[in-house]
Design a protein around this nucleic acid. Structure first.
Length: 539
DNA sequence: AAATGCACGTA
DNA sequence: CGTACGTGCATTTT
């Protein structure tokens, strides 16, 4: 039986022949644009990133052709393909298809290829029905092309800097381990939660911490609170060891990832995050340390490459809060952004009914935590824990906050309510997230889905806007004939490599395109920095 | 060898 | 008892 009718076969051949036309496919690894990156247009359009979790079986988040074919065409590719040791990972993995590959292998590959065109039709129809076809063609497809360029460019890394950091961290790890062993009275594996629990709770008789599935937590927060209670030197050394060993493994991973061209080429995943964000792997360049001095010294290793003038970072200020102001339509919060005052001081002044000059640093930081917690569905209990105050005080803060910013509260409730009714949430650009657990009988699952529901439109709209900005920036760079290029996206930040003499023009262009990527009822502020290293640029 | 759990880095 | 990720290690399961 042929899976392909003659018309499909002809269309497939046309598709294969047209190498200029960008084609995106979900291959066996869930990697979208990899094929496009290599200039191999051997595939059809089969998936859309915003369809995570419902084009495939709900419990499954991958987009492999097999499961898509199963769900949308009722074709079981596995059953059609005889198991083969040398079966390629996907139909498009041409290099693994040796000339003398067994006929059955070639047949299996052909079947996977053959299914693509009907699958493309089925999925496009789904996207059309769900109102996300434009999102796919006008945003995700251009983003895929942009990502290809960013991956190919990579970012220059100074291995000498990393080597120096590694030597320092080796010493810190050794020293901390020796101190910990002395304090414990014996050696142990400091990376083993199990062994740590024995030492902390059995040998040293410390008070029990929060429970995990397998025992008691030894996370940094818990260790810090144990240190407050016991002042035991073992805890100091352990925390120091944790910190140093984590940084060391980050540095080691980065060094291993340096390509022969002296640059690191990450892979951006476009179809993983349920909210529409990108993710970064091999290595993950979206979680390079930034908050501590030691972390910033790792960022010093990311440098401007030969033939370029500097790095430029551009990030959105408080983009999620701005989206919340826009989506909720809360006039007070909108005014807070329009005022040009320090946001958190302004909000704190409103919450406490005092003048902006009377806001204490602690009031500001508490209100800041509250504001950020809102978008995550932070509970009163969680807020209290984070601020180190009792739940009554946290509840009071929450009440005062919503007394001034009531529309925010109403909006968040409305989002969840509508999601429960529709089964999905929606971003500003129409990206959906399906949340079947909103009607779960299991309270924990249901409440987790509720937090996800109120977060998804906010995080997801931010992702939409940044993606739009990326497409616009890339288009403007090309249109202006500039040689500067985008290298990384870190959720609300873009990092570019600036060609000689282009810095001012690119900064202007990036500011314009980023702040104009969407029109909100509050301005989209962008802050820009330049420097020879990532650290220096991030100012 | 593969899966799971914990811990921790980023936005 | 705060969302979204990726990675490495230890440990358990297959």
């Amino acid at each position: 039986m042929s899976l392909l009718d003659p018309a499909d076969e002809q269309a497939l051949f046309a598709l294969l022949a047209d190498t200029d036309q960008p084609k995106v496919v979900a291959d066996a690894k869930g990697s979208w644009h990899a094929l496009h990156a290599r200039g191999i247009a051997l595939d059809g359009v089969v998936a859309d990133p915003s369809l995570a979790g419902y084009l495939c079986r709900p419990e499954q988040r991958s987009y492999d052709v097999g499961s898509l074919a199963q769900r949308w065409l009722g074709i079981d590719l596995e059953a059609l393909s005889a198991p083969q040791d040398d079966q390629p990972q996907s139909a498009f993995d041409l290099e693994s298809l040796a000339d003398d590959a067994p006929a059955a292998t070639a047949l299996a590959a052909a079947r996977r290829a053959a299914v693509l065109l009907p699958l493309q039709r089925a999925l496009e129809e789904q996207m059309r029905q769900r109102g996300v076809l434009d999102l796919y063609t006008d945003l995700e497809m251009p983003v895929a092309a942009t990502l290809t360029g960013m991956e190919d460019a990579g970012i220059a890394v100074d291995d000498a800097v990393l080597a120096a950091r590694q030597t320092e961290l080796d010493a810190r790890v050794t020293h901390a381990a020796e101190g910990a062993f002395a304090a414990a009275g014996h050696e142990l594996n400091l990376s083993s939660p199990k062994q740590l629990q024995t030492v902390l709770f059995d040998e040293l008789k410390m008070p029990k911490t929060r429970r995990t599935k397998t025992g008691y937590t030894t996370d940094a927060d818990a260790l810090a609170s144990l240190y407050v209670k016991t002042s035991h030197p073992f805890l100091e050394h352990l925390l120091e060891h944790r910190d140093a060993i984590k940084l060391r493994q980050t540095v080691e991973g980065l060094r291993k990832a340096i390509a022969p061209d002296g640059r690191i080429h990450t892979t951006f995943q476009q179809t993983i995050a349920a909210t529409g964000r990108l993710s970064s792997t091999d290595p993950n360049l979206q979680n390079i340390p930034a908050r501590t001095e030691e972390g910033m010294r790792i960022r010093e290793a990311f440098t401007v490459g030969d033939g370029y003038e500097c790095l430029l970072t551009a990030d959105y200020s408080q983009i999620e809060m701005r989206i919340m102001a826009h989506l909720s339509g809360d006039e007070a919060l909108i005014e807070a952004f329009r005022s040009g005052e320090d946001l958190h001081r302004y909000v704190a002044a409103m919450v406490h009914g005092i003048g902006i000059d009377e806001v204490t640093p602690q009031q500001r930081s508490h209100v800041k935590a509250m504001s950020y917690g809102l978008a995550y569905g932070l509970s009163t209990f969680g807020l209290a824990r984070q601020l180190g105050v009792d739940t009554a005080e946290a509840a009071g803060l929450r009440e005062a906050y919503f007394a001034r910013f009531g529309r925010v509260h109403d909006y968040l409730e409305h989002v969840v309510e509508q999601a429960r009714r529709d089964g999905w949430t929606q971003t500003m650009f129409g990206r959906r997230r399906y949340l079947p657990d909103l009607n779960s009988d299991n309270r924990q699952r249901r409440e987790m889905a509720e937090r996800a529901a109120l977060n998804a439109p906010i995080q997801g709209s931010a992702a939409d806007i940044v993606k739009q900005a990326m497409v616009d920036v890339a288009e403007s760079l090309t249109a202006a004939g500039l040689r500067s290029r985008m290298l990384l996206q870190i959720h609300d930040e873009l990092l570019l490599e600036i060609a000689p003499g282009e810095a001012d023009a690119v900064e202007e262009l990036v500011r314009t395109r980023m702040s104009g990527a969407a029109t909100l009822s509050v301005p989209l502020d962008v802050s820009v920095g330049r420097g020879a290293t990532w650290r220096d640029a991030a100012h």
